[in-house]
Design a protein around this nucleic acid. Sequence first.
DNA 1: GCAAATTAATGATTTATTCAAG
DNA 2: CTTGAATAAATCATTAATTTGC
Lengths: 199, 199
Amino acid sequence: MSPSTSSRWCPTPEQLMILEELYRSGIRTPHASQIQRITAHLSLYGKIEGKNVFYWFQNHKARDRQKLRRKLIKQLQQQQPYHHHHHHLEQPQHIPSNYHLFNYFDHPPTPISGEIEVAPQVISHNWKPEIPSRFKMESPTMRMCSHDWMMSMVDIGLPSPCCNRPLKTLELFPMTATNVKEEHTNTSSKHLSLPTPTN
Amino acid sequence: MSPSTSSRWCPTPEQLMILEELYRSGIRTPHASQIQRITAHLSLYGKIEGKNVFYWFQNHKARDRQKLRRKLIKQLQQQQPYHHHHHHLEQPQHIPSNYHLFNYFDHPPTPISGEIEVAPQVISHNWKPEIPSRFKMESPTMRMCSHDWMMSMVDIGLPSPCCNRPLKTLELFPMTATNVKEEHTNTSSKHLSLPTPTN
DNA sequence: GCAAATTAATGATTTATTCAAG
DNA sequence: CTTGAATAAATCATTAATTTGC
């Protein structure tokens, strides 16, 4: 392939440095006007289009998050193997039956005073956990498979027919493989591409 | 930090996933019986109490709404940053934030009326992605030095005046409207590494 | 040293999900 | 109930790094 007909943008070191500096400064998903300016200034250092800037931030953010997610999963899995579920654990710890009153009062006894709790949000998106086999089907409360359990919960939660969302089959529990389905090696479909791009 | 010394609940990935699945399925404010059951099942995966479940739903719902609200406000506000200092390269072209969608909207302009067109996915693999000319930048003439320019970009990107540098430990305020507060790894660049000057 | 072969990074696309407006 | 807008996740595809045999 001729170098003049490169099919995708190849950032120059200066462009990359500036993009990373912007990212480091907090920009994650720039909008149209920002993309426009960034593109204009980065074009001083080489050929670039707005879509390149857009894609760069998308990918960088996603892969940053992916990295962090993987790190956290590893940490959490190595930290505590979570002993229990031995005997009568199906007794939950002391739910005062006035919990429903919280819904009315909406004032927790220990007020979370405005600050943002980070922990759930950090790892709040999809990820594929790896459940050791000893956690699979042992406890008496796990007789129901979790999909069924979830369905029953949703059933209770939605007595009125307001949410008929199809509830696409999300894999809550990976079946057997201890594979965190990342690192997808792209040896799957390597058919040759068309020879002459119309550039 | 050891989990035994942790003063607050730290959800395991399994717990978090199940909670999010329940949330996605429509549960927003579970009542006492639901909380009880959810807690019972989640306790298979780690230490948890009913109040954790309760608070999780409260917080998740609130932050979901907050995120949406801020996103909408932001994207409305970012339509007018055009009265900055000097803008002789400002083009009236409107770059939407979703560049990728333009492949759908743009390339098959329905040449044949009255016939169902072939689904774009069928032919999209060998499609030569060329952004229409209205997205292409003209050669910029702005010569602001990159530091000042970067600051202005960050200014736009950060409506909150409190964070203009990466906080290493904990970030209480979201920098952009829609991001999840993950921390970045600064060493992702292979071509250049910036020695983090602003400290 | 060098290319061919292989692997890792990353740019570019597609798909799915969300909320809310119509 | 449908659709629009936005974007995150997943995937595809190409380039760069690197490994390997010579």
